[in-house]
Design a protein around this nucleic acid. Structure first.
Lengths: 162, 162
DNA sequence: TTCAATGCAAATCTTTTGCAATGGG
DNA sequence: CCCATTGCAAAAGATTTGCATTGAA
């Protein structure tokens, strides 16, 4: 799936018999220019700065379009939805996530990606993106595992969103 | 982290200074007895059959508690929230997901899990669970990639939820 | 007794949809 | 022209929260 680009998006639309509109191009451009971990709200705001008449629904609809092509994917980090760009250089799609404090450490493992490709190939899938998340407790929180019930917690009843 | 059990949950609560209530025990029991991929709604309904006065909020609050301990985790498959039990035998946490038709193929790779542990260890994390998803197009949908824009789609405007 | 936990309903968020107006091919 | 796309507002869901009450320790 090469690098994402305007013309390529245009081509994709044509191939699928969809129309290329000012809104779609604008949304895709802003999305691609932004770093990863962009929330829908943030994307909407940025797009709005360039074209104030674009609606929230259109952003969602366009995002879906991109997701179907593997150019955007969504995930929840703690309690907010974040988007990230597909395949762009330097992107990390792998995370170690602490279930207690929410800390996120990014990592990358070429070996793992190799194995992933192998699995996909064996199943006949054409893979565009992947998501790998390891959940547990970070070094700082491990001590809190036992007997840590008395310290004050934030305003929310529990530290982490389901 | 071993297998999840009632007494163990009770111990966890005590360790964190939390109370062991009839509701919490009921919810945890039903959750553990059910297979994986249980939605919050389904869990609520099942718990309700045993104890009709339990509220939805309590189910959410208890799930959060379990999530913090790595005993439950949530994920979205297409458009619905699904929960799954931690570490139970035969569970697959790895998926190949087709972005066009939504097909999901489960797989397991011991080699990948080994590498995951290695990464976690290196960072000092204690891992309870993981989630690996590969996104792309399945064998059946690859032909649809080009010129497939004219076939009828379901009632939703796009085939897949963001 | 004390304060965490619960139940309920209301409040928040997030995402989707119905529909008339608009505009791309 | 024709019908996909858009904007808006309303609808639908999903999750959280305020608060009086209940109940575990």
């Amino acid at each position: 799936m090469g690098k994402f680009s305007g013309p390529q998006f245009h081509r994709l639309l044509r191939e699928r018999g969809l129309k290329s509109t000012r809104q779609r191009e604008q949304i895709v451009r802003v999305f691609m220019e932004s770093g990863s971990h962009l929330s829908v709200e943030e994307l909407y705001q940025r797009v709005r700065q360039k074209d104030p008449r674009i609606g929230y629904a259109t952003v969602y609809r366009t995002l879906k379009l991109m997701a179907e092509s593997g150019w955007a994917s969504s995930r929840r980090f703690r309690d907010r939805l974040a988007l990230f760009e597909h395949q762009s250089a330097g992107e990390h799609h792998d995370h170690l996530i602490c279930l207690l404090c929410g800390k996120i450490v990014e990592f990358e493992s070429e070996r793992i990606e190799e194995l992933q490709s192998r699995v996909a190939r064996r199943q006949g899938f054409r893979i565009f993106d992947h998501k790998l998340e390891l959940y547990g407790h970070c070094p700082a929180c491990i001590p809190k595992e036992k007997g840590g019930g008395s310290e004050k917690r934030g305003k929310s009843e529990h530290g982490k969103t389901l």
